[in-house]
Design a protein around this nucleic acid. Structure first.
Ligand code: ZN
Ligand code: ZN
Ligand code: ZN
Ligand code: ZN
Lengths: 131, 131
DNA sequence: TAAGTTGCGTTATGCTATAACGTGTGCCAT
DNA sequence: ATGGCACACGTTATAGCATAACGCAACTTA
């Protein structure tokens, strides 16, 4: 695991995500960081781009939002598939890995000569507390 | 299976999607249907909303686009989870069902008292022909 | 020094989606 | 038939998400 030194903007964006209970949209992050001098969406998007690259942040495709990775320093699974549950009431996100699903999807792709890139698995619903 | 009579707008939107090789964004559909009198995004979005409801169309969350269902009249799996491969070169979409994955995800949700709603599984990559 | 790389800031623009309002039509219970 | 309702539709405006294009500054490498 290579520990990368984050820039100021990256640190601020990651901080905003880490402190939040729920996923944040880029524009919400922008608003939270206006006090720190942020003025434009690109400052957020550029930081997010790097943080995603470093594996410190995940993008939730189904809700156009971002979360800090729940276990950024864990090597196991760090390059594998990540799945999420997303509570539509409180925004709580749970991140998990499943090798059975991973292998099942890989097998399907192999069978069709499909070369898989990034895979999205997101379950929207309601968490225990919000049932 | 209840066969619903589609409105003119719904028929046009479904037609545009059915004829297309690749998924279409709402605005692309709009442009394709200007000749038929479409003027505004809402005409497309309202039709899509119903078509999604009828199970005739799927939304691909990871690319903000829509496809006609590959097997709209098939009862098996019609209420279950649908997964997609999406070719990032040619846009080809393949739709499939997998009960093992479905059960695996359901199990995970059960374990955490998470009540699952809509689930997204999308693999972006490159298809056989575009490898 | 010169060239390349990276991050940053700014302005402008484009793409995606919905709010809010009003119209018209068919249906049906009164 | 007439009032009320549900539903599709049309239009305008607005909200929300994301990137293009320019230029500057700092640092690295040759
Ligand atoms: Zn993670
Ligand atoms: Zn919740
Ligand atoms: Zn389908
Ligand atoms: Zn392809």
């Amino acid at each position: 695991m290579t520990s990368t030194q984050l820039t100021r903007n990256q640190t601020l964006v990651l901080g905003a995500l880490s402190q939040s209970e729920a996923p944040l949209s880029a524009y919400t992050i922008l608003d939270k960081l206006r006090g720190e001098g942020f003025r434009a969406p690109l400052q957020v998007y550029r930081a997010l781009e790097k943080l995603l690259e470093f594996g410190l942040v995940h993008r939730l495709e189904s809700i156009n939002a971002f979360v800090a990775c729940a276990h950024p320093h864990q090597d196991c699974c760090s390059h594998g598939l990540t799945a999420f549950t997303i509570c539509e009431s409180c925004g709580k996100v749970t991140e998990f890995h499943d090798h059975v699903i991973e292998e099942r999807l890989a097998g399907f792709a192999r069978d069709r000569n499909f070369k898989p890139g990034k895979t999205t698995i997101e379950i929207r619903g309601h968490c225990d507390g919000c049932a």
